[in-house]
Design a binder for these strands. Structure first.
Length: 860
RNA sequence: GCCGAAGUGGCGGAACUGGUAGACGCGAGAGACUUAAAAUCUCUUGGUGGCAACACUGUGUGGGUUCGAGUCCCACCUUCGGCACCA
C-alpha cells in the first residue's frame, strides 16, 4: 500500500517535472558523504607532498589561527575563515603549488578546567570530546587539512617542546623569576589572567579582584622590543594591525630630566622625571612621583625627612601609600580621572626658572613607565591641569595656541597640548613646538641636567599561572629553595593526574603526591617541583613551527623541514586578541633565530583577518541571545557546498556581516541550477563550435577567478560564476541545447572546485569518470583573445553628463579622432551641444568620451 | 579622551589606477503552471515626473579640486572595534 503510493507519487512528480523547464535533481545528500570518504581513502590531502605534475615545487604554507576546542562546538562564524583558507589551499594545489595546510588544537586552557571544578570531569576528557566534535564538524565542511599530522598542545609530545623552549629561554637569561603584581581573586583563592578580570570582578564568581604581589616567572620579551618594531616593515599585514602592535610596544622618545631636591637635610638628593615635552619646562610648576617611587617610600619610612613638619608629611605620605595599595581595580576605574595625592614637604628645583616646585605623590603616575616620576606642566597637559586644579597649584602658559589665545589658562579646553609657538620660555620664545623640543633637549644635555631617553609601554611577559590545565613549568627547587631547570632527559615533565583542582589558595599541582615524589626520586629528598603552569599563550605562540614536522621525536622540528616551509606564507586570524599572540610569536621566532635554528625573523609573511558573522538579528552570535547558527543544521538541510559558497558570497571576508537564511536558500538554488546544467549538458564537437557569447564569458570568468581567488575576493568570484551560469542557461534554453565543448564543461567544473568541492567532484566524475579527482587537476587557463568583447559601448558625456552611447568595434577603439568625430555626430549629442563646437574633447581609450562646451578649463 | 575602521536601494553587497553607480544575490510586486499551495519559470524593481521617448535627482552632511568624484582634498556628523591617567 505504502509502496504503491510512493510509486504513484514519484511517477506524478516525474510527470510534473518533465513539464517544467529545469527539473532540479541536485541532492547534496547523495554525494557529499561519499566524496568525503573517498578523499580520505585516497589520502588526497595528506602528507606534505601531493601527487601531481613535476612542476609542484614552489611551497605554500597556509596557516589558520590555532583553535581552542570549546565544548559548544563550531558555529558558522568559524566556518568562514576555514573555508576561505581551504579555497586557497585547493586553488593553489590546482595551480601546481606544494601546499602545507595543517591543523591542530590549542587544547590547554581555562574553560575545561572551570568545567572540571564544577562537574568533576577531568579536563583531559572534556578536551578530547571537544576535539572530536570539532574534528567531525570541520571534516564535514570539506576543509582539506592534513589530518594525519594533527597536533594538540596538551599532548606530552607537544608540550615537551614547549618546556624545551622555556629551558632555552632560561639558559639565555630570558626566562627569569621576579616579584610582580597579579590579579588575585580572594574567593577562588587563585590568580587570574587579565582576560578573566571583567570590570574589576572575577569572571567566575563575580568577586572583587585585588592586586597582590607574588613571585612569578617572566619572559624577557622587552629585549626584542626594537626588533619587534622594525620587523613590522618586512611583513604584509593590515596597517591597523601593525599600528596596534606599535601602540602596544608604545615607544616614546623623550628625556630624563634630573631635578635637585630641596627642603630636606640630605644634600645630594635628586628626582628624575621622564618627559617627551621638555620644551614646556619653563611652565613646570610641580613634580609628582608614583606611590611606588623610591622617594615616596623613603619619606614614608622616615629615611628622608622634610625640614618642616616632617612628622606630618611622613604620616600623610605613608597613609596615602597604604590607601593606594589597598585599592581594587574596580575602585581605580570608578575613580576615573579624579585626582588624589599628598604633598611630601619637599621641593624640586627648576633650574631653568630657579623656582621651587612642590613634590607630590599621586597614583595617577605609573611606576612602570618612564622613571615613575613626572614634572607637572598644567598649562599644556590635561592630566597635569586636572591635578593642579584639584590641589590649587599654579598654572603658567608657555605656548600660544594656533588660534592666538594667549590669555591665562583657567579651563580644561584651553590646555594646549599639540601645536603652537613658545612664549615665557627664555631662549625658546618664538619657536614652534617641533623646533623647541630638540633645542631644549640639547640645552639640558649640554648642562648635564638631563639625558635623552626612550621609554616603552611593553613589559616583560608574566607566564606563571596557578592553574592545573596547562604546561608545567620545567623547574625544580632544591631544599634551599633555589630554582634549577628540569634536566632535558626528564622531558616531557608530565602534568600529574592525581590533583585536586578545586581552588584551595595554592596551585592545584601542589596537591599531587606523584608530582612531589617524582621530583624527589629524580632530584633528591627535599626537592620540590614548580607548581605553577604556563600561560597558554606560550603553547600557542610557537605551534606553527611544530606544524612543519609534527612527529619529530628529537627536535621541535628538523632543520630541513623548517627551511623548506617557513616562514608562513599566509596567516588567517581573527582581528581581536591578536596583539599579544602576534607579539609573542614574533618574539619566539626571533629568539630561536638567534639560537641558530633558522634564518628568518618574522614568522608570518602575509596576514589577513576575517570578520565576524552576526546572527540573523544583526547582533553577535551568542548562546544567551539564542541566535547561534550551527553548521550542522545548515549542512543537513542544504549541504556543505551551500554553506561554503553562501559564507563566501556574503561579502568581503574581513568585514562583519549578518546571517540571512533566505540568502542561503538562494545559493542552494544556484548550486542546484549548476548541477542540473552540467549533468544534463550536451557538448558540442569542439571549442570552435561553441556559442561565442558563452565561450567569451567562460574565458572572462576563468581570468576573473584566477585573480579574485588569490586576492580573497570570493564574493565577486561567485557572482561571476552566477553570471556565467545565467548566460549559459539563457542561451541553451535551460540546458537543452549544447553550447559548450566537453573541455569547457570540465573547465567550468574546475572553477567550481575550490569553492564547492563536493559538487565539483561529483560533476567531474560524471564527465571524466571516478578515477581522477578534480582537486588534483590543473587549474584552467584562459585565452585573452577569446575573452575580448568584440564591440564596446562607449558612454558619451556632454558637459559632464552622459547623453548617449557609441557602439565601437573592439579593433577601432584606438582610433581617437574617428571616435570623437562619431561621438559628436550622434543625434542625442548634437541636441545637447546645441550647435556649438566642443571647446574640449576627451577620449579615454576604451572607457569614455567627454565633450565640453564653453570656456576651456572652466566648469560649464 | 586617544588610536583604528566604516557609512552606497527595503537588505547583504559590486564598482579597475578618478571614467556608464547599484554587478551578483536576497526580499518585494505582477504574471505563467496548478483544483490549490509549495516548488519552478518569466517580467519589473533607487527616488520623482511622464502614456512614452526622456528629464531631473541620487553613494552620511557641508564645501573644494576636475571635462568627469562613491573614489582625491578640507571641515563635520554617525556607527562599530581597540586602548584607557603611558608623562
Amino acid at each position: 500500500m505504502l509502496y504503491s503510493l510512493h510509486c504513484l507519487l514519484s511517477l506524478y512528480l516525474r510527470l510534473c517535472l518533465s513539464k517544467i523547464n529545469v527539473p532540479s535533481i541536485y541532492n547534496h545528500r547523495r554525494f557529499e558523504e561519499k566524496w568525503l570518504l573517498d578523499w580520505e581513502r585516497r589520502q588526497l590531502f595528506q602528507g606534505r607532498s601531493q601527487p601531481g605534475s613535476a612542476s609542484r615545487s614552489e611551497k605554500l604554507y597556509l596557516l589558520f589561527a590555532f583553535a581552542y576546542p570549546s565544548g559548544s562546538g563550531l558555529h558558522v562564524g568559524h566556518v568562514e575563515s576555514k573555508t576561505a583558507l581551504d579555497i586557497l589551499a585547493r586553488f593553489y594545489r590546482m595551480n601546481g603549488r606544494q601546499v602545507l595546510f595543517p591543523v591542530g588544537w590549542d587544547a590547554f586552557g581555562l574553560p575545561a578546567e572551570n568545567y572540571a571544578i564544577k562537574t568533576g570531569v577531568h579536563p583531559a576528557q572534556t578536551t578530547r570530546q571537544a576535539i572530536d566534535t570539532f574534528r567531525r564538524q570541520i571534516k564535514r565542511i570539506g576543509v582539506s587539512y592534513d589530518w594525519t599530522n594533527e597536533i594538540a598542545t596538551c599532548h606530552p609530545e607537544y608540550y615537551r617542546w614547549t618546556q624545551w623552549l622555556f629551558l632555552q629561554l632560561y639558559g639565555q637569561d630570558l626566562a627569569y623569576q621576579a616579584t610582580g603584581m597579579v590579579n588575585w581573586c580572594p574567593s577562588c583563592q587563585t590568580v587570574l589572567a587579565n582576560e578573566q578580570v571583567v570590570d574589576g570582578h572575577c569572571e567566575r564568581c563575580d568577586h572583587q579582584v585585588v592586586q597582590r604581589e607574588m613571585k612569578q616567572w617572566f619572559f624577557r620579551i622587552t629585549k626584542y622590543r626594537e626588533e619587534l618594531i622594525g620587523g613590522l616593515e618586512e611583513v604584509d599585514w593590515p596597517e591597523p594591525t601593525k599600528q596596534q602592535q606599535l601602540n602596544w610596544i608604545g615607544k616614546k622618545e623623550g628625556i630624563n630630566v634630573e631635578y635637585p631636591v630641596e627642603g630636606t637635610a640630605a644634600t645630594d638628593l635628586t628626582v628624575n622625571c621622564f618627559t617627551t615635552r621638555p620644551d614646556t619646562n619653563f611652565g613646570a610648576t610641580f613634580v609628582v612621583v608614583a606611590p611606588e617611587h623610591r622617594l615616596a617610600r623613603d619619606i614614608a619610612a622616615g629615611l628622608v625627612k622634610p625640614d618642616t613638619a616632617a612628622v606630618t608629611h611622613r604620616r600623610q605620605v605613608s597613609r596615602y601609600l597604604r590607601q593606594t595599595e589597598r585599592k581594587t581595580e574596580r575602585e581605580r576605574q570608578q575613580e576615573g580621572r579624579r585626582k588624589t595625592g599628598v604633598f611630601t614637604g619637599l621641593y624640586a628645583l627648576n633650574r631653568l626658572t630657579g623656582q621651587r616646585m612642590p613634590i607630590w605623590v599621586s597614583d595617577f603616575v605609573l611606576r612602570g613607565f618612564g622613571t615613575g616620576a613626572v614634572v607637572g606642566v598644567p598649562g599644556h597637559d590635561r592630566r597635569d591641569f586636572e591635578f593642579a586644579q584639584t590641589f590649587k597649584l599654579p598654572v603658567k602658559r608657555v605656548v600660544v595656541a594656533p588660534d592666538g589665545d594667549g590669555t591665562d589658562i583657567t579651563s580644561l579646553d584651553q590646555v594646549q597640548e599639540e601645536a603652537g609657538v613658545m612664549l615665557n620660555s627664555g631662549f625658546l620664545d618664538g619657536l614652534e613646538i617641533s623646533q623647541a623640543i630638540p633645542t631644549m633637549m640639547d640645552y639640558l644635555e649640554k648642562r648635564g641636567w638631563g639625558q635623552r631617553q626612550t621609554a616603552y609601554r611593553l613589559r616583560d611577559w608574566l607566564i606563571s599561572r596557578q592553574r592545573y590545565w596547562g604546561t608545567p613549568i620545567p623547574i625544580v627547587y632544591d631544599p634551599e629553595g633555589r630554582p634549577h631547570p628540569v634536566k632535558e632527559e626528564h622531558l616531557p615533565w608530565l602534568l600529574p593526574t592525581d590533583v585536586d583542582y578545586q581552588p584551595q589558595g595554592k596551585p592545584p599541582l601542589a596537591s599531587s603526591r606523584e608530582f612531589i615524589e617524582r621530583t624527589e626520586r629524580l632530584y633528591g629528598p627535599g626537592w620540590r617541583p614548580e607548581f605553577d603552569t604556563m600561560d597558554t599563550f606560550v603553547d600557542s605562540s610557537w605551534y606553527y613551527l611544530r606544524y612543519v614536522d609534527p612527529r619529530h621525536p628529537d627536535r621541535f622540528a628538523s632543520a630541513e623541514q623548517l627551511r623548506r616551509w617557513l616562514p608562513v606564507d599566509f596567516y588567517m586570524i581573527g582581528p581581536e586578541h591578536i596583539v599579544l599572540h602576534l607579539l609573542y610569536s614574533r618574539f619566539f621566532t626571533k629568539f630561536l633565530r638567534d639560537q641558530g635554528y633558522f634564518k628568518f625573523g618574522e614568522p608570518f609573511t602575509k596576514m589577513r583577518h576575517q570578520g565576524i558573522i552576526m546572527g540573523p538579528d544583526g547582533k553577535r552570535m551568542s548562546k544567551s541571545r539564542g541566535n547561534v547558527i550551527s553548521p550542522d543544521q545548515v549542512i543537513d538541510k542544504f549541504g556543505a557546498d551551500t554553506l561554503r559558497v553562501y559564507e563566501m558570497f556574503m561579502g568581503p571576508i574581513e568585514t562583519d556581516k549578518p546571517w540571512d537564511d533566505s540568502a542561503v536558500a538562494g545559493v542552494y538554488r544556484f548550486l542546484g541550477r549548476v548541477h542540473d546544467l552540467v549533468s544534463q549538458a550536451k557538448a558540442v564537437e569542439s571549442t570552435a563550435d561553441e556559442h561565442p557569447a558563452v565561450q567569451r564569458k567562460l574565458h572572462q570568468v576563468i581570468r576573473k577567478l584566477s585573480a579574485d581567488i588569490p586576492a580573497l575576493k570570493f564574493n565577486t568570484a561567485i557572482a561571476a560564476l552566477m553570471e556565467l551560469t545565467n548566460l549559459w542557461e539563457d542561451v541553451s534554453r535551460h540546458g537543452r541545447q549544447a553550447v559548450l565543448a566537453r573541455a569547457s564543461l570540465i573547465n567550468f567544473v574546475q572553477l567550481l572546485a575550490p569553492l564547492a568541492p563536493f559538487l565539483a567532484e561529483e560533476l567531474y566524475s560524471q564527465l571524466e569518470g571516478e578515477a581522477d579527482s578534480v582537486h588534483l587537476s590543473d587549474w584552467p587557463t584562459w585565452d585573452d583573445r577569446l575573452a575580448a568583447e568584440p564591440q564596446v559601448s562607449l558612454p558619451v558625456q556632454v558637459n559632464g553628463k552622459i547623453r548617449a552611447q557609441l557602439k565601437v568595434p573592439a579593433e577601432q577603439l584606438g582610433d581617437t579622432s574617428q571616435i570623437l568625430e562619431q561621438a559628436q555626430r550622434l543625434p542625442a549629442v548634437q541636441r545637447w551641444l546645441g550647435g556649438e563646437e566642443p571647446s574640449n574633447s576627451i577620449y579615454v581609450p576604451g572607457r569614455i568620451v567627454s565633450l565640453v562646451t564653453g570656456p576651456v578649463g572652466k566648469k560649464a
